[in-house]
Amino acid sequence: MHKSLLIDPQKCTSCLQCEMACSFEHEGAFNPAKSRIKVFEFEHGARAIPYTCTQCDEAWCMHACPVEAITLDAATGAKVVHEETCVGCKVCTIACPFGTVNYNADTGKVVKCDLCGGDPQCAEACPTGAITYVDASWTGYERMRSWAERLDAGA
């Protein structure tokens, strides 16, 4: 059983430690704008939702890639972008119905969550347990699944 990121928005205080940790892990700089997990605030910060890729089974991004630049990491279940193969066509950014693949104009490539190879730094950094890395059978996962099923193209 793969593990997945379980997000509990009710525990999120919007401290942005996850964004800092993510951008440091992937970009080598504390720059929330470059984070692959994003905290969205509502009602002027009274409510916040951390949001990133669920590594869905459908893998819309991976299937839509025309040059096999997104592949499955068998160890973690993550769909991983290979920058050296990505041509920057951005088809995955519109194919992903969750909006969790983004284009980085600085590099001309797309970026998405890769679960940090199995040690997600966002979960590591979260001080309130709003982001945890748990067995994928947990209940939060079911909510993501039900959304994925609505989108399911068929198979």
Partner: peptide
């Protein structure tokens, strides 16, 4: 618009 643009597909499709 380059961030989270895919959600538009999600919204149209669902």
């Amino acid at each position: 618009l380059t961030q989270h643009v895919g959600v538009i597909r999600g919204l149209v499709q669902t």
